[in-house]
């Protein structure tokens, strides 16, 4: 497959994820669409290109693992899992409803394909390190991918885990920072500056790659580069746009933790090319 065909194929999947995110949060009446949309191209490239996984066998021992540390963007993960075939797409519309397996934040005991329950920020990288250690102990060559938020990077445990991964030379860990620049109380720079973020990760002993987090070919290339790095974990700093793909949600802080209204849902789905909405 040529690179342009590959790009087209992954972007088509990203579009499906974005529509699902809108519909899921719209139907639920709550949830976190902004960060789900900013992470959509990263998650899409993981599930529909990069990850070695078997949706029919979620506990396959040799699978690559994806840890969603910023658990509030559960909709993008659920959409990717459903589209991959881990569970029926019908379940997506039960998000956040009583009795649904799709809790507001991911629950590994309820959802096939969820590697760890998350939602409390900061904990995913340490979990990813543990999974990576397990892989090394078992001499399995799977890789562990972990998606971290920019606001989340204000949590102290992120840096404890950063130290740990470098200390134990966990080259099977690839972290991705969804750097959309917005958090609940304002811009990340206003609330609690995390820059110079690339220098910080380098100083912690990581290999760092900086990319446009909506360019799927750049994402693919970054994953490929990470695979070649030995004795060091890799951090991909992915510059993204919160709410990406829906004009009135882009860079709109309010859509961090607010679902679209029914009207907004229709409008957004139209923008995302859904015909029968």
């Amino acid at each position: 497959m040529s690179r342009s065909e590959l790009r087209k194929r992954i972007e088509e999947k990203s579009l499906i994820l974005r529509r699902d995110i809108i519909r899921m949060t719209g139907e639920a009446g709550s949830g976190h669409p902004g960060g789900s949309l900013s992470a959509a191209d990263i998650v899409s490239t993981l599930y529909f290109y990069q990850l070695r996984h078997r949706p029919a066998e979620p506990k396959w021992r040799e699978r690559d693992r994806f840890v969603l540390s910023k658990g509030h963007v559960a909709p993008v993960l659920y959409a990717a899992l459903a589209e991959s075939g881990y569970f029926s797409r019908d379940i997506l519309w039960t998000l956040r409803k009583m009795g649904s397996i799709l809790q507001g934040h991911p629950d590994m005991k309820k959802v096939p394909g969820v590697e760890i329950s998350s939602g409390s920020l900061g904990q995913g990288l340490a979990v990813a390190n543990g999974i990576a250690l397990g892989g090394k102990l078992d001499q399995l060559d799977y890789r562990v991918y972990v998606l971290i938020g920019d606001g989340e990077s204000q949590e102290g445990i992120v840096w404890e885990a950063a130290m740990f991964a470098a200390h134990y030379k966990l080259d099977n860990v690839t972290a991705i920072l969804d750097y959309n620049g917005l958090q609940i109380d304002g811009t990340v720079s206003e609330v609690m500056e995390i820059r110079p973020i690339v220098d910080k990760w380098r100083a912690f002993g990581w290999h760092v790659i900086e990319i446009d987090g909506h360019n799927v070919l750049a994402i693919i290339d970054a994953f490929a580069e990470a695979n070649t790095i030995k004795e060091k974990p890799t951090m991909i700093v992915a510059h993204t746009v919160k709410g990406k793909g829906v004009s009135f949600m882009e860079n709109a802080i309010d859509f961090h933790g607010k679902a679209p209204t029914k009207e907004q849902m229709k409008e957004a789905l139209k923008e995302l090319g859904e015909v029968d909405c």
Partner: peptide, 13 residues
């Protein structure tokens, strides 16, 4: 804190 979450990750394997 890091130790507890690392332990959790190891346990999943």
């Amino acid at each position: 804190q890091n130790m507890m979450c690392t332990a959790a990750g190891l346990a999943t394997t």
